[in-house]
Simulated scan of single mutants.
Amino acid sequence: MGFFSFLLLGLIAGAIAKLILPGKQAGGWFATLLLGVVGAMLGGWLGGLIFNTDLQSFFSLSTWLLAIGGSIIVLLIYGMLTSRRARD
């Protein structure tokens, strides 16, 4: 998968992850979309390690599920870090 298609995948996965997660996350849409790109990279990396999945196809269901799952994980971690900082 090329750089721009991977970037697009991460942006869409970040938006979907924000819609899936309940409540209000810290940061705006821009931060969420950037975290979605990071999450897509994390999901792709973990998917390659754990499931030995080939993530070369943009239209593959496994690619999308791993990208969205990675985005959810990154958004949850980011939310925990920012909520802890706001309480201190």
Results as ranks from 00 to 15, higher is better:
M1C: 06
G2F: 12
F3M: 14
F3H: 08
F4E: 11
S5E: 15
S5F: 10
S5I: 15
S5C: 06
F6M: 15
L7T: 02
L11C: 11
L11D: 04
A13H: 03
G14R: 04
G14V: 01
I16A: 14
I16V: 15
K18F: 02
L19Y: 04
L19W: 07
L19F: 05
I20W: 06
I20F: 09
L21W: 03
G23M: 05
G23C: 06
G23P: 01
G23L: 05
K24M: 05
K24W: 02
W29E: 07
T32H: 12
T32Q: 10
L33Q: 08
L33S: 12
L33V: 05
L34F: 15
L34Y: 08
V37T: 09
V37Y: 03
G39Y: 00
G39M: 00
A40S: 14
A40G: 12
M41H: 09
M41K: 08
L42Y: 12
L42N: 03
G43W: 14
G44A: 05
G44M: 11
G44F: 07
G44E: 06
W45Q: 08
L46G: 06
G47K: 01
L49P: 02
I50S: 02
I50A: 07
F51E: 03
F51G: 02
F51M: 08
N52V: 10
N52Y: 06
T53W: 11
Q56L: 04
S57L: 11
S57R: 14
S57V: 09
F59H: 13
F59S: 14
F59V: 11
L61Q: 04
S62W: 09
S62L: 09
W64F: 07
W64A: 10
A67W: 05
G69H: 05
S71D: 03
I72H: 02
I73K: 00
I73Y: 03
L75R: 06
M80C: 07
T82P: 00
T82Y: 08
T82G: 00
T82A: 09
S83W: 08
A86Y: 03
R87M: 11
D88M: 14
D88P: 05
